[in-house]
Design a protein around this nucleic acid. Structure first.
Lengths: 107, 107
DNA sequence: CACTCATATCGACATCTGTCAATATCTAGG
DNA sequence: CCTAGATATTGACAGATGTCGATATGAGTG
């Protein structure tokens, strides 16, 4: 799911393949823990994974799993810095989501 | 899921309850068949359920199931007219989604 | 009231998902 | 290298989900 479809959901008949891509994106967003991760990460430019386990109140493997889902959905960027891994929200993908939800009347 | 949370996802720490509400909305959008339904319905103001089965290529009970999911997520309005049931996209909920995805820098 | 047709519900099934404990991997420092 | 600490992977399990055939419900028609 590297590339993200941009066909606005509400304007034209969604091609099946675009529907699949877009549904994958929404699926990545369909869990409260993952939404809270995105929120926590976007609070600061960039957040160490080690700072995400405690506020989420979930076990470390579970947090790692959710981060992986978001990363593979192209919603997070990841960078290793020493022993730590820093995550940041991938704005381009969020932008693609906004486009997908853009008003039907829009150009 | 009658009322929809509007807290922008990317600005402040999402309260757990808002995260749950919003995740529910995204979950409703996390299936290609449902996205295609929304697309088909928004093509015209209002669409009869009977016109949705064929283009989707799924069995009638399956389509009915997906319509129910979208309806219960507050993404569709439903109106019985004679023997038929007409669906339309609920713009207010889509708008709430746009708000949830609005840019972090936004007011 | 019976018949027809549109839609919903039910029951069953295979598959997917979130969660955690246990364990592995990887990096830095001694 | 060996240890310590951060992150990922594995395996297991309960619960949710998408799908369909069969059936029920509900509205118009004769």
């Amino acid at each position: 799911m590297a590339e993200v479809c941009c066909t606005p959901l509400l304007t034209i008949p969604l091609p099946e393949s675009d529907a699949i891509d877009l549904a994958g994106l929404f699926k990545a967003l369909s869990d409260p823990a993952r939404l809270r991760l995105l929120s926590l990460i976007s609070e600061r430019e960039e957040v160490c994974a080690c700072d995400l386990v405690t506020p989420l109140g979930l076990a470390q493997p579970t947090v790692s799993h959710h981060l992986k889902v978001l990363f593979e959905a192209d919603l997070l960027d990841r960078e290793r810095r020493g022993r730590w891994i820093h995550y940041r929200v991938k704005e381009t993908t969020v932008e693609a989501l906004r486009t997908a939800l853009s008003p039907a009347g829009g150009v």
